[in-house]
Amino acid sequence: MDCIQPGTIAPEDLLAFLDGEAPPAVGEHLRRCPGCAARARAYARSQDRLRAALRRIDCPSPLVLGEYELRLLAPEEGRRIAAHLGDCPRCAAEIGQLRGFLAAEPAPTAPGPVERVRRLVATLVAAPPRGAYAGLRGADDDDTRTYRAGDLTLSLSTGPSARRGRLSLDGLLWREGGGAVTADGGSAILSAAGGATETAEIDDLGNFAFDEVAPGTYGLEVALGDEHIVVEGVVLAR
């Protein structure tokens, strides 16, 4: 089919029209000229098919681009990707997007059960109130250390164990003002440096005990509902 006004528009104008970059006169001509409209449609179809089939044909995958960014690729492949990035605006844009994404952190979400727990690191108190409470334990000649975390005070005493070569560790908790230590009970977890743990229940009066503990340095975590008291570097020595 021939053009109704030969020479009005060039074949390149049809491609520019498809890109939305042709002057208005080209669109007006296409509305009136079935022959040029058919040619434009043929170009459109050619481009459409080729672009769909060849899209990013020689681009590395997003994962490989990311491994380049994280320097996980072998040197030779890294050089190949670097050369590609020099003349691929799409991959260069994706690398930029990846950098921004890796640098960004999500906004804090609702806390999970672990995050809801209030953790207090206990500090060693210089003057332990042994006189007032030691009688409760029946051991005023042992090695007692007193820690404080918030309104809680924790007294830890070590003594001999029934088992040879082991020690006992007794704990007593109380609140300033005399309130209940815990309404629902609680537990004390003693963790060795190697990862082994031992758990003891805390009674209504705030007492707990580990009866056969090997000498060493431990971490102690006292769990009272949503309140956890952490004592680091508990040294048990004979």
Binding site: F17, L18, L30, A37, A40, Y43, A44, D48, P62
Partner: peptide, 22 residues
């Protein structure tokens, strides 16, 4: 990004339909 890359490009024929009524 794999999913975004796999999306088909905007077909030029759509522009042709809209602008030239073909």
């Amino acid at each position: 990004l794999d999913a975004v890359r796999a999306r088909p490009p905007a077909p030029p024929e759509a522009l042709l339909d809209r602008e030239a009524g073909i």
